[in-house]
Nucleic acid binder design. Structure first.
Ligand SMILES: [Mn+2]
Ligand SMILES: [Mn+2]
Ligand SMILES: [Zn+2]
Ligand SMILES: [Zn+2]
Lengths: 139, 139
DNA sequence: CTCTCAACTTATAATAATTATAAATTCATA
DNA sequence: TATGAATTTATAATTATTATAAGTTGAGAG
């Protein structure tokens, strides 16, 4: 659980960090820093946006979570640090996990003299929910 | 050439747009808006950053060039609008084209109900030049 | 258990790429 | 060559994020 992940990294166990990790744990929505802040603020009235940003940065650099930069304006966060495909719906802006067949690559590897240590794969389009929505309108 | 691309889109032919398109044409460096501005400013003293941003946005939306968002802070631009892999060197920050084998996908396609209209594939690591550099130091 | 202090949180200011606004200029065509 | 919509420009505004500095606290030492 979150407690162990923090201890293993030599990080202090604070209520704010626990709350952020617990909010992210098993969360499939890939929330932004601001969304995380908004969701926790009611239960942690003293919480500051800077703490959310700091915590997310520390955990991302430690490899405990990954930044998802599928949108141009803000970062989103994923408690699963393993590389996997992401999909952004251009209608509802939702971010989904999306694994596409031949794209499972083990890093590091070398291509044409380039040492590849990591990669991101982002898909853009229309999600199942929004496709269903437009079908309904056409009927 | 650039003249025809602009005419085809119904865009006015201005010296600024021609200069931007010509700078990008066949350019493998994937420059940022600010780099484009800096390089053109000496020859176009009246040039404004806003014009560079506007032109790049218009041309990107028209599908004449692509935005490369491989870095978190700024966008880079590529006169080749076709999807292809990019590589960012964490040492020198250079951006290279990098095509990796099983990753040529034709859009649009559908996966698990998601309609994929486009995608980006970004690689991160150390480029050939910087690998050579660190080898030299070790000798 | 309580002392201590580096680590942490917080409020606030600063940063920086980009976007918006509005006035001046210019391309294109009649 | 005159016209007007499109474009350029200077400038201000935006906004996610980062930096700063002062106050607070978690956790090990004693
Ligand atoms: Mn994910
Ligand atoms: Mn390219
Ligand atoms: Zn959707
Ligand atoms: Zn390099």
């Amino acid at each position: 659980m979150a407690v162990n992940r923090l201890k293993k990294l030599g990080l202090k166990l604070t209520p704010q960090r626990l709350a952020i990790l617990n909010l992210l744990e098993g969360n499939k929505k890939h929330p932004s820093a601001e969304e995380i802040y908004s969701q926790l603020k009611p239960r942690f009235p003293s919480l500051s946006p800077a703490t959310v940003y700091n915590t997310l940065e520390v955990l991302a650099k430690a490899g405990e979570l990954q930044e998802v930069r599928i949108r141009g304006d803000k970062k989103h966060f994923d408690s699963n640090p393993a590389p996997h495909g992401h999909f952004l719906c251009r209608i509802c802006q939702s971010i989904y996990d999306l694994d596409v067949e031949p794209l499972e690559m083990q890093t590091p590897f070398s291509v044409k003299g380039h040492l590849v240590e990591g990669y991101t794969l982002y898909f853009y389009g229309i999600c199942p929910v929004c496709q269903e929505g437009s079908k309904t309108k056409l009927n």
